[in-house]
Computed example of a mutant assay.
Amino acid sequence: MAKKDYYQILGVSKSAQEREIKKAYKKLAMKYHPDRNQGDKTAEDKFKEIKEAYEILIDEEKRSAYDQYGHAAFEHGQSSNTYTSFTSSSDFSDIFGDVFGDIFGGNRTQRNKKGADLCYNMEIFLEEAVKGAKKEIKIPALQKCTVCYGSGAKSGTKPRSCSLCHGKGQIHTRKGFFTVQQSCPTCHGRGSVIINPCNICRGTGRVETYKTLSVKIPAGVDTNDRIRLNNEGEPGINGAQSGDLYVQITVKKHAIFEREANNLYCEVPINFAMAALGGEIEVPTLDGKVKLKIPYETQSGKLFRIRGKGVKSVQNRHQGDLLCRVVVETPVNLNDEQKHLLYELGKSFHGFRGENNSPRSKRFFDGVKRFFDDLTK
């Protein structure tokens, strides 16, 4: 009986890349694997067929020969034909990757494992965020033991190679058709055991301590920005590289200013006389006071922009603006003379709906009147 085309078996085109071939193989292998179809001879034969096709097409030289001569290239005893159980860790890891590793518990433990990354939450003032600062932080940390230099073994001794896994850190266990690898239960994947542990770190290679670090806060940072300090995280296992420390920034609420992107906002109260007649006031910035001209007939809520007095972006160094929102304040604690003057001023407006002096009031109350007139029609 003529053999099926290997490309058809895997369901890929003749121009398929290595990644497509691997992906197709993993999908079919999961479907027809004997462990998932126990007692199904058809599925087992199908799996053999898939594996044979994969082993030819994934090998560059064999694939080239197959493309040129077809199945004849592997006759005369040179075929990879038969189904074989997986006995090498490279077969298991490369062919099935994480898929069967998750099912059977296989993993690739590292004897020298890099330390974990750590995070430190830092609160700073708005002025520090805008102008930059240098801060010192004191953090708890696990540091490499200075007595055993991270080996975990007592001074003058060394860890011994694990007798169970012979220093490999992994053992192979038979599971049905498979021989899978997993962490050695004796050395926990390290490949070595400590007979005489260090008196200081008790064999862990790390000790608890505190360390003080200097952190440079760049100008323009904002809440949720992070600053990375390389190799200042948790130390690695067995003398491996340390992780990184991330400083998470939170900017405290300011009494005067609010920040939005690179702009600053503030509210500036003015009395109604200045709002009506205009004038000049001083407004605060993070660099000191500046003068702001208020034009006559300014309404409450008017926004004035002072360019270049905001925050300089930490990314593109663009300088934001300061936006001042004026709030017309109602006078309080008036004496008799002031009350009389206001009374006379109010009379001159011919009521609160005066057309000339209160155009917004007139428009509002005219609109209210039309609304109720429409309801009564």
Rank of each mutant, 00 (worst) to 15 (best):
S89M: 10
R108G: 12
S90G: 02
D102K: 15
H71E: 10
T109V: 10
S79A: 14
D94C: 06
F86G: 00
F100C: 03
N81K: 11
E75L: 06
S85R: 00
Q110N: 08
S89I: 10
F104Q: 05
A72F: 07
G115K: 02
G77E: 09
D98M: 07
I103C: 08
K113C: 03
D98N: 13
R108D: 11
S90K: 06
R63V: 02
A72S: 09
T82V: 14
E75M: 07
G105L: 04
A72H: 07
D67T: 07
K113Y: 00
Q68F: 00
K114R: 13
D91P: 00
S88R: 08
V99W: 04
F74A: 04
T109Y: 06
R108T: 12
D102F: 09
R63T: 03
F92Q: 01
F74R: 04
S85L: 00
R108Q: 10
G106H: 07
I103N: 05
S89L: 09
N81V: 06
I95V: 13
T109M: 06
A72R: 10
G115F: 02
Q68N: 05
T82E: 15
G106M: 12
N112M: 08
F104M: 12
K114C: 01
T84W: 00
A65Q: 14
D91F: 03
K113H: 06
Y83D: 09
F96T: 03
D98E: 14
K113T: 12
Y66D: 03
V99F: 08
G105P: 04
I103W: 12
Y66R: 09
G106V: 04
S85F: 00
K62G: 06
G97R: 14
V99T: 14
T87M: 01
D94W: 08
K113D: 07
G106A: 15
S80R: 12
F100L: 15
T82C: 03
T82P: 02
N107I: 10
H76K: 12
S93Q: 12
G77V: 13
G106S: 15
H76A: 11
G101I: 06
R111S: 15
Q78A: 08
D67Y: 02
T109A: 13
Q68I: 02
G70H: 04
T109G: 13
A65K: 14
Y83I: 12
N107C: 11
G77N: 14
G70D: 05
K114H: 00
G101A: 13
G105R: 07
I95E: 13
D91M: 02
K114S: 04
S90R: 07
I103P: 07
R63C: 07
F104Y: 15
S90C: 01
